[in-house]
Design a protein around this nucleic acid. Structure first.
Lengths: 345, 345
DNA sequence: CACAAAATGATATACGTCAATCATTTTGAT
DNA sequence: ATCAAAATGATTGACGTATATCATTTTGTG
């Protein structure tokens, strides 16, 4: 009835505890036949290491680091907030968690922040990259030190990290396109698409998906040139304005990046909320209000709080040397007027 | 640097380890002033019990039970599957998890299943209720035994359980209404709404939310009588058919419950996919196909896999006597054609 | 067979908490 | 002051693993 211990395993395998230990903890210097005997016994008894005992025995503090854009960015502010809320739990789990902030869209800022973590003996590092940030060298060096690397929100190349936690941004773009198409209800139209920059991987992916669906399923909806905003509302405001001025046929706006405040201001000022279908990413108080007013029609929210939770769960599994928990795909939430989540979701 | 232990606390408080232990584990027979001294020391040192050591020392097996409708129901099948996937993790966490299946829509079946758990020394029980199932007596008895009770998917009265894990179904109904409205793009219409039964709480809530938004924001979209299907495709097929035959003005169908197969069959047979906007709940292979075909336009999926994960996380926290983890609100996913999640999400 | 190298056994301590025992001291009521 | 009750102190073993040490046995090579 009682769970088998390593002593039980050793006994069944007909070896000493020391040898069983050498096998399960891969210490080497064990004859092949002993390995087999021990593994057989493990199998037969269904032995699983008692994690509590192991942690108690090791008693080594675990260290995580999150490298995130500054919390003044509304989106990342939500990740920070969730991390704050998780601190008591991390304390209970005996995990220390450092947060390093960097300035997004500042060349080399991420790379520099990551470099500072070299040789610091972190167990895991999670970071928000943006694709073309030249960080792959540092990431490689960190991984060479045995640090687990997790990329958040925007994925980098497959080999640069151990895990990616974030939504599928191509799918998000496809969803946006279909909703735009649905809202046109067969009518022709023209969409302005905006991004922070085209080399930000998540924005690029969204545009890609958006294009795919419009081209294949809604051929009479055109896409104007893609506007690059550096995720700044001021840039958004001016560039989007000139686009709207030039082109009176615009029926929809899809902002794949930040800078929603610019969009909202403009639609309000030009009084376009009735005539333009507006779909943006990620909830903030500005977006909330705009959605309730009808200025924005749909918000696709990737729920950074949940991404943060996933990251924490994954990192905890990693430090305990457990397999990652079975986690369903991350799907962004779609908000329309009248059913927003509670303020502190 | 090292985390403070209870010995440290006792020392700082100027009492023996035994007394400190009496305080933190509420064993009683401690003078008030000693309690204060110990609590002060705990506070001062930021002492938190080492969960690993506690678990190791207690070494008591934890027992959970899930009381779910039979896995042949596609929706609950997904919950079962997620539970299956979690078994290795539960084993590692030294938690045993029994699954009790019952026949939904069979009067008294849930109550009977729950009764069987009385006196079985479960730590926590999670169950899927349906509102009017007369189970409140048993639930009270179980809670009186000290069993933690969690309701899933469909909430019961506030006092009948310790936690509810599921989406806000009123909001889901509101969302459905807004999407239906959006798809009408100002045109008038008439929606058929279908439920399993009106006393199933989640279905009822959805209808309520749906009504709210249509009445307030889309007054020229009518709602036909609500069709009750007992969540059976056959019933759906016949009742919905007669409704469609009677009323040629129907522009949309909103199914709040199960029985989607009936909806899909009918729309296909009557060739209504172009003329009727169809929105349903919860993904299944039938719904997947129908969505890709254009027979169904939108699926609101409450992601039972995630609900199951949440339940497991919560129950684990409960058995370890930890505060529940900080969890963002559950928001259902909204699927349209072309961006479905991976098959085994 | 001799000898070194490799493998194994035996054993001990530490990790922090829980739970129990028993002796001793303090407290409060008379 | 006396006595019982209440509170406290001191101490111990158990939980299962990690990790280390040292002695002993087995293996392989010439």
């Amino acid at each position: 009835m009682r769970n088998p211990t390593l002593h039980d395993v050793a006994h069944l395998a007909g070896v000493s505890y020391a040898t069983a230990d050498r096998v399960v903890n891969r210490r080497g210097n064990v004859a092949e036949k002993s390995v087999l005997k021990v593994k057989g016994a493990v199998e037969q008894l269904g032995y699983v290491r008692n994690v509590s005992a192991a942690k108690l025995s090791k008693n080594s503090p675990h260290r995580l680091a999150f490298v995130l854009p500054h919390r003044s960015h509304t989106f990342f502010g939500r990740m920070h907030a969730q991390l704050d809320r998780s601190q008591p739990h991390l304390k209970i789990a005996r995990i220390s968690c450092d947060i390093i902030e960097f300035e997004a869209f500042e060349a080399g800022a991420l790379e520099k922040a990551l470099s500072g973590l070299l040789g610091q003996k972190y167990d895991c590092i999670a970071f928000v990259g943006q694709g073309a940030d030249g960080a792959s060298g540092v990431l490689g060096a960190l991984r060479a030190e045995g640090v687990h690397i997790v990329s958040l929100v925007s994925d980098g190349p497959e080999g640069s990290r151990d895990h990616y936690i974030g939504i599928d941004n191509v799918k998000a773009g496809r969803t946006a396109a279909r909703l735009v198409g649905m809202a046109h209800r067969g009518a022709a139209g023209c969409v302005v698409v905006t991004v922070g920059a085209m080399d930000v991987r998540d924005h690029f992916d969204r545009v890609t998906g958006f294009r795919q669906v419009l081209e294949s399923d809604f051929p009479n909806i055109q896409i104007s040139d893609v506007i690059k905003t550096k995720d700044q509302s001021a840039v958004m405001r001016s560039k989007l304005r000139s686009q709207l001025d030039q082109n009176a046929d615009i029926t929809a706006i899809y902002n794949t990046g930040a800078g929603n405040e610019g969009v909202v201001d403009l639609v309000r000022i030009l009084d376009l909320s009735a005539s333009i279908f507006c779909i943006v990413h990620d909830l903030s108080s500005v977006v909330r209000t705009a959605l309730e007013e009808g200025v924005i029609d749909i918000v696709i929210d990737q729920r950074p709080e949940i991404e943060m939770n996933r990251a924490l769960a994954l990192l905890q599994a990693v430090v305990d040397e457990l397999p990652p928990p079975p986690t369903p795909e991350l799907i962004p939430a779609i908000y329309v007027r009248g059913h927003l989540p509670n303020e502190r979701s």
